[in-house]
Design a protein around this nucleic acid. Structure first.
Length: 824
DNA sequence: GACCTGCTGCGGTTTG
């Protein structure tokens, strides 16, 4: 069917024109895709109306099929399933859809199904289905856990998977894959003439083709990628210290440059200030108020440990334009389309090209407009990242998001889900599950193990009734216990969080959450900071921290245990490449030019490595003998490499080390000379016996034990407690360790155990990247240098390793003193 | 088990 000749097209085009909505260059292509009943992926920068285009495509299809009656007829059955990873966005999207439907006179209804949906509303949706349902991956699985779900889903014409780039690189993506394989199979059973499509909506990532393949895998037919053609332009402006020589060589906070951002904030209507960690965002917020008290009331704080209500208030105020600046963490990364801002500032390394561009894209939000982002380095060398990011934007070197493979924990959860609703047939389920990208390599034997596990709790746990959940009844695997079913429903999902304590005023009102280990260090009467307020600890009761407002000037800023996002491989490569120009760059290359004095000193003492070189520095200080290596591969790879290198050196001669590392390099420190020289250095970085050496040097069992906790929770082996129930994090960890031990002893090839080790290799050590690095080093020139004192390159690593012994004030003094000594 | 810089995201009931 030719799109332009259809009535649906006319109706929608007329309506868009009446409302002065600019058409997007890719829009008709997206509509044609949906109209032809095919599947695919729509890719465009934020602000290019991806969401709306796909929604309108569904309407065009409907109008075309009911040209006379589309304004009167009500299907009263689900037509469009809208999967969105963010609860908070559902209302915005739903409202926009409702407005359009009303304007067009199409009597469809929009429903929202997620954890916020009240029970009454859920029941209503079941009795009378809305035509559009906006849902999270988790809630979709809860639908699959309901009896009669096939009827509910049978009328579906289109599934839109919004923000697919966010989901694909996580286990939440696996939830989506599994739901797709079930729904696709349902639709095949129905033998209907009506088309059924899956359309992913994605920002740009390195592996867009693969992202589509993963999503559409169960359909067993190729898809089409629809791309916006208009390129997005981004401009990066570095915030430079006045005298680079005096700017700290180490550190992560960057507060020294606070004066420079005040004029930027004042000159723009709204500014987002992105900070890498929650703790540092609290300190930035406070500091800005200290140096610019006139901003009081016009500036707010937003991060993941602040109470939802407060965050919503901030988001609304941002939307309404009553705030001039929001200091935030990645909590404001998503939800872009509905909250545009004028200016964006990134403090410290964004760690990856994609994240940086996404944040930049929050400004200059209209198609064709230039996005502008300021970059504020937290130590001198970090300025190189600004230069590298500029190159990345030219070359469009955007990271890939690797899909997860063979997540048996998620599979076990999914099969339990089916077992409590309609039950499943083993043969059929095997075929369906194997049609997903995630499980296409699963063997029959592994599938049998999964079934065994569901029915008997596997080999190791078979004497415990608690782990026997599923029964085979008349050829179908089912869960009949209502108690088990209820527990399971409450555990659907793949996000396992640490136990947090709620923080609440004695007078009532919640402020946010804090981690157990942090608050247990404080005595009643001590003051800490949360959500920008100074709070005095009164007491801890029932997993709630009771506080009152404090006017004390002294306050402890909490830290939260977060993820450790390492520098991405792309950004690392670009950094190495950028260093080629160090010392040669002219004034047009602002960042490198500013860094010239630093590079000069580095060259004087040691050397600035080029792209095809690996620099190793050996320095003797009063602390002992240091060996510094600079692969620029991110701290996880460096952590593993440090352990492997230490092990390999110790085979030459007995010697013990302590380690330190950051995203640029790592340090080995010993009290005796380190035997690394021209004769053995290539061998020390060889890929030979890598696997064996990893096993001997890195404590992978301990790492796997940690990973296993999450796997056991997702796989339903560990019960986290009923909502509102108070279970300490310790207990969960303890029971996970116990299970781990049992498997280790009685069932070492258990699927979930193997998965834990696999996750350690893939995620904790980034094994592929480690191997690639060693192969690269073998092709490089290794440069050994013996500087007489610390160099600008090793300085930040050295400072980080000192940090544990010093408080932050004395650390700052110490850094200044060390730096001054070197400059003499 | 955490602190040494260290993010985000989700989630219950049922069947007359």
């Amino acid at each position: 069917m030719k799109l332009r000749q259809t009535i649906g097209y006319q109706v929608i085009r007329d309506w868009l024109a009446e409302n002065n909505r600019t058409p997007f260059d890719y829009q008709e292509e997206a509509w044609q895709l949906i109209l032809s009943g095919s599947s695919g992926l729509v890719n465009a920068p934020t602000g290019y109306g991806k969401t709306f285009s796909v929604f309108l495509g569904a309407l065009i299809q409907y109008i075309n099929e009911h040209p006379e009656t589309f304004r009167s007829k009500r299907p009263q059955a689900l037509q469009l399933l809208w999967i969105s990873p963010l609860r908070a966005l559902a209302k915005d999207i739903g409202r926009a859809m409702e407005e359009a439907l009303q304007a067009l006179g199409i009597p469809w209804t929009v429903g929202i199904r997620n954890g916020d949906t009240p029970t009454s509303e859920r029941q209503k949706q079941k009795r009378k289905s809305p035509e559009i349902l906006i849902i999270t991956p988790e809630s979709l699985h809860l639908v699959l856990a309901q009896k009669g779900y096939p009827d509910f889903l049978k009328s579906l014409r289109l599934i839109a998977v919004d923000e697919w780039h966010e989901l694909i690189g996580s286990k939440r993506g696996v939830l989506v894959e599994l739901a797709m394989c079930r729904i696709a199979a349902l639709r095949k059973e129905q033998e209907t003439e009506l088309s059924f499509s899956i359309v992913g909506i994605s920002a740009t990532i390195g592996n867009l083709e693969q992202a589509m393949e993963v999503l559409l895998s169960p359909l067993e037919q190729p898809g089409t990628i629809v791309r916006a053609r208009l390129p997005k332009q981004t401009e990066l402006i570095s915030i430079l210290p006045d005298e680079i020589e005096k700017y700290p060589w180490a550190g992560h906070l960057g507060l020294k440059l606070v004066e420079k951002i005040i004029p930027i904030i004042e000159a723009s209507t709204t500014t987002l200030l992105f900070i890498n960690t929650r703790g540092m965002s609290e300190r930035w917020y406070q500091t800005i108020l200290d140096v610019a008290p006139q901003l009081a009331g016009a500036i707010a704080l937003h991060h993941g440990s602040i109470e939802q209500d407060l965050r919503l208030w901030v988001e609304d105020a941002l939307h309404a334009g009553t705030l001039k600046c929001v200091v935030c963490t990645a909590s404001l990364d998503l939800g872009v389309d509905f909250r545009p801002v004028e200016t964006v500032i990134q403090v410290g390394s964004p760690k990856g090209v994609a994240r940086f561009l996404q944040r930049a894209g929050r400004s200059g939000h209209q198609p064709g407009a230039v996005s502008r982002i300021y970059f504020l380095p937290t130590h001198s060398l970090e300025l190189v990242e600004a230069a590298a990011l500029k190159a990345a934007m030219d070359k469009e070197m955007i990271e890939s998001r690797e899909p997860f493979l063979l997540c048996y924990d998620v599979l076990i959860q999914y099969l339990s889900t089916l077992a409590i609703s309609e039950g499943f047939n083993a043969e059929q389920a095997f075929r369906e599950v194997r049609s997903t990208f995630c499980f296409r390599e699963m063997t029959k034997a592994e599938w049998q193990q999964v079934l065994q596990f569901l029915v008997h709790g596997g080999q190791a746990l078979q004497q415990y009734d608690e782990y026997k959940k599923v029964e085979l009844i008349d050829g179908l695997y089912r869960i009949t216990s209502r108690r088990v079913a209820m527990r399971h429903r409450m555990h659907i999902g793949t996000i396992v969080s640490d136990a947090m304590l709620k923080v609440k005023f004695v007078s009532g009102g919640y402020v946010g959450v804090i981690e157990e280990w942090f608050i247990s260090r404080l005595e009643p009467g001590e003051v800490f900071t949360l959500a920008g307020r100074n709070l005095e600890l009164v007491m801890i009761k029932d997993m709630t921290v009771l506080v009152r407002k404090s006017s004390s000037k002294k306050s402890i800023v909490p830290s939260w245990m977060g993820g450790r996002m390492p520098l991405s491989a792309n950004l690392g490569q670009l950094l190495r490449h950028t260093l080629n120009e160090a010392g040669k760059a002219g004034p047009e290359n602002i960042e490198l030019y500013a860094l010239a004095p630093l590079f000069e000193l580095q060259n004087q003492l040691s050397q600035v490595p080029e792209e095809n070189e690996l620099l190793i520095e050996q320095i003797e200080t009063k602390d002992g003998f240091h060996l510094y290596v600079y692969p620029f591969e991110g701290r996880l790879v460096h952590e593993a490499m440090a352990a492997i290198l230490a092990y390999r050196i110790s085979k030459i001669q007995p010697i013990s080390f302590s380690f330190a590392m950051n995203d640029y390099g790592f340090e080995l420190l010993s009290d005796q000379p380190i035997p690394v020289d021209d004769t053995n250095v290539y061998e020390l970085f060889s890929t030979d016996n890598l696997f064996a050496d990893i096993q001997r040097s890195v404590n992978s069992t301990e790492m796997a034990k940690r990973k296993f906790r999450d796997i056991a929770v997702i796989g339903g082996l560990l019960f986290q407690g009923y909502p509102g129930e108070h279970k300490k994090a310790r207990h969960l960890q303890a029971s996970a360790s116990l299970l781990f031990k049992v498997f280790q002893e009685y069932e070492p090839d258990n699927l979930l155990m193997r998965q834990a080790y696999q996750e350690v290799f893939d995620q904790q050590m980034e094994e592929t990247r480690l191997r690639n690095m060693l192969e690269r080093i073998q092709q490089s020139r290794i440069i050994l240098r013996f500087p007489e004192k610390l160099t600008p390159f090793c300085f930040p690593i050295k400072v980080d390793s000192k940090r544990e012994q010093l408080s932050s004030e004395s650390l700052e003094d110490r850094v200044r003193k060390m730096q001054l000594q070197l400059l003499k």
